[in-house]
Design a protein around this nucleic acid. Structure first.
Lengths: 211, 211
DNA sequence: CTACATTTTGACCAATCAGTCAAGTTTTTT
DNA sequence: AAAAAACTTGACTGATTGGTCAAAATGTAG
């Protein structure tokens, strides 16, 4: 099967990849306005006009980075299985997101920065696709509650709480590092974090009288 | 008692205030690099050289905005009372922070943006003052746990969870607005949010068999 | 090997923007 | 009311930066 019209050459594929990797790092550190094409080009090991040959405008690079990021970031959410055990599924989701926060915090930061500044590039995506998938998962959670397999809580706020908490460990890494420097150095920090969050979220902080 | 050497005139006081208010809006919308002195000057209703008469460098404006913001944002945290009822105190804290998220989201966003980009301007503050006050509150929570008035959870992660969640409603407002547009329009949205979060945090999401 | 397409780059341009300066206006002090 | 201090601004400057362009280098197909 010959490629009908997609004339993406081998070199193009490689270089686009290199550029997007470099751009992710730069954008996550300095934001859109704070990053320069020169910085990205240098990190990608090519000249600025060459980079612009692949992505004609700065915004094109940014949008491409965001798209990759969004997909990566949403994957664990999509994987929440309606047929699984509620607490298991949510625990798995939390662990997966925290693992992402550890391995690819830049990705999360680019996304956070975009939202923080009003989502100028992905507002439409949020209102259509994201809203859609959230509603589906809210439905799943509602079913779980109706079946008595989850306490009767507000599904939207539960999702927001999990998002907020897991993102926090990627986006506010510097703050956490400043507040508990010893603990973050521990190589099990993220596992301990997952365990602590899951415990709080599942059981609450109200003391249990029984025992 | 005469002012010994602080020659802050009436006009200075007024104009500094106007500038910082304008700067908060601009910085929160576009970030440090994304904001221009012209923008701030225009919003403040004065010429750029005039603004620079009060704050000689762009960074001076930014640092001043951050300082005000930090203080405002930390006040409810300081008010957590060791002598109060644990659940009451934490509920009050959550409500206060959510109220701030509603009334002054710009403030939260400037802070979030600063952390996101590595806290170049307030790294020292985090490592000294913030770390300190957190350790004090961690001590309070530990005492509550030891006295059996709180479930045995990890105090640091509890604090992070509350921070993350409450900040989320200010910083990710756009995302929340996109996902649940109808609910945010409700004038009681923040009260409902506070109630939902407190319920989840206090009781957890594990279904209660008893009854 | 030849012709054609793709990739790469040095030199350049126009716009933006932080910050200066000198000259004016207003307010405060005496 | 006069002098001094504080405040305000139009016009400018130098540095940065997104993006262009034409020409050179490299890769590829026949």
């Amino acid at each position: 099967m010959t490629q009908t019209k997609t004339k993406t050459t081998r070199i193009q594929e490689i270089n686009r990849g290199i550029i997007l990797d470099a751009a992710l790092e730069v954008f996550s550190a300095y934001g859109f306005r704070g990053s320069t094409i020169d910085q990205i080009a240098e990190k990608a090991g090519m000249s600025k006009p060459n980079l612009l040959y692949y992505f004609p405008r700065k915004e094109d690079i940014y949008v491409n980075v965001l798209e990759k990021t969004l997909d990566e970031w949403l994957t664990p959410f999509r994987h929440i299985d309606p047929k699984g055990d509620p607490l298991d599924e949510l625990a798995k989701y939390i662990v997966a997101k925290l693992k992402l926060s550890e391995s690819r915090p830049e990705s999360s930061r680019v996304f956070a920065n975009e939202i923080l500044h009003g989502a100028p590039a992905i507002g439409d995506f949020l209102q259509s696709h994201l809203r859609n998938i959230v509603e589906r998962k809210v439905g799943v959670i509602r079913t779980w509650i109706d079946d008595g397999r989850l306490a009767p809580i507000d599904p939207h706020h539960l999702i927001f709480m999990i998002w907020a908490t897991t993102q926090h460990y990627a986006d506010f890494k510097v703050q956490i590092g400043a507040v508990v420097p010893d603990r973050v150095k521990d190589e099990n920090f993220y596992e301990e974090t997952a365990a602590a969050i899951i415990t709080i979220l599942f059981n609450g902080i109200r003391p249990r009288q029984e025992y």
